[in-house]
Nucleic acid binder design. Structure first.
Lengths: 190, 190
DNA sequence: ACTATAGCGGAGGCTTGCCTCCGGTACTAG
DNA sequence: CTAGTACCGGAGGCAAGCCTCCGCTATAGT
């Protein structure tokens, strides 16, 4: 619920000035995060407004289209992911990459949605993807240079693999972790 | 489009007797397969009827609930999957498992839906899962006994891993194959 | 404290999908 | 060929979601 770091990635809608408006804006973003996590991209906007304790009109004023709202949530998550890349930078090559991917899995409140939309092209998506790549690629390259990662895998392959696994249904968290581990082991040289 | 092998898994709705009815039934099933593949479980029933060239009433007569329709499509796919398990049986242990999983990926017109619903419990789902497990588990065990597969992986882990990857968005078929290969490599002993 | 105005919120028109019901059609058995 | 009936199909009522519009409210600057 880190509700004060806002834009930075430029494309973002800007936070309102008046105090009540700002409160509503944040409540909407937070409700939207939950809703998207739970129902994917198709979550009901009226439901989101309701959960935020706000009229539907207010939602539309802040986020004229569903895409605007989704982008804002999504960009927030991407930012956190970029920050995480910095935090793991001092681990050994493979461990750093692994830790970051683990983070990728945990953060994704937008999991389901990211998974559905990974190919979509919109301005915000392009920017977000670029930022995410800029953050993760170095970790990936470093691991590859250190010989800790097969050379026939691409960074994009790995991201999609992980997001696929992230979005899938598992019996429990243990299983998710176990499966992720299996898949990541496939990335190491034999 | 193998539209003549029907039930066998018992739970299925039975195929009508009158010729026009049978034609409609099959058209619905086929349209539903496409629709579920494209839009997941939530596909519009009216759209399905339209695509099948049939009135909405006819759809409801054959499949009183959305679940009934989905189950029928799903069971069809599971049957084909069971059949595939027999066909690969004479390959070497690892290759057999790999080929079957490959088949799993290709067949899944219900991919997206399977992915969404893997945890759902309904009569039909239980039966289908059991059948699928009965078909695949031997391949899995054989590979494990032959030392071609790590011993800390469960069959269920693998199925979920593969169905996660299957449902994810990829740039092209090549990438999907590549990623699947990466993940499967993680299953082999080091 | 006062006021101009940014911001609120929900009523309501519209679309889309769900599902039922029943007058009409066309298959099949005899 | 004919009759009986199984089956067809879509009209129509209902629910849910989308989005706009505008009279009312609360805030912030003086």
């Amino acid at each position: 619920m880190t509700e004060n770091s806002r834009p930075a990635l430029g494309v973002a809608v800007k936070r309102p000035v008046r105090s009540d408006a700002r409160r509503n804006f944040d409540a909407l973003l937070s409700a939207a995060r939950d809703a998207f996590a739970e129902h994917g991209t198709g979550a009901s906007l009226e439901e989101i407004a309701r959960r935020a304790g706000v009229g539907i009109g207010t939602l539309y004023r802040n986020f004229p289209t569903r895409q605007d709202l989704f982008d804002s949530v999504y960009l927030g998550e991407i930012e956190e992911l970029c920050a995480a890349a910095v935090q793991v930078a001092d681990l050994p090559p493979w461990e750093a990459l692994e830790a970051w991917l683990q983070r990728f899995v945990e953060y994704a409140a937008t999991k389901k949605a990211i998974y559905e939309e990974l190919n979509r092209d919109s301005e915000a998506f392009r920017v977000a993807r670029e930022a995410m790549y800029a953050a993760g690629q170095p970790l990936f390259d470093r691991a590859q240079d250190a010989g800790a990662l097969r050379t026939d895998a691409l960074f994009d392959d790995v991201l999609r693999m992980v997001s696929g696994l992230t979005g899938a249904g598992f019996v429990d968290e243990d299983q998710r972790t176990r499966v992720l581990q299996l898949a990541l082991d496939g990335l190491r040289p034999r």
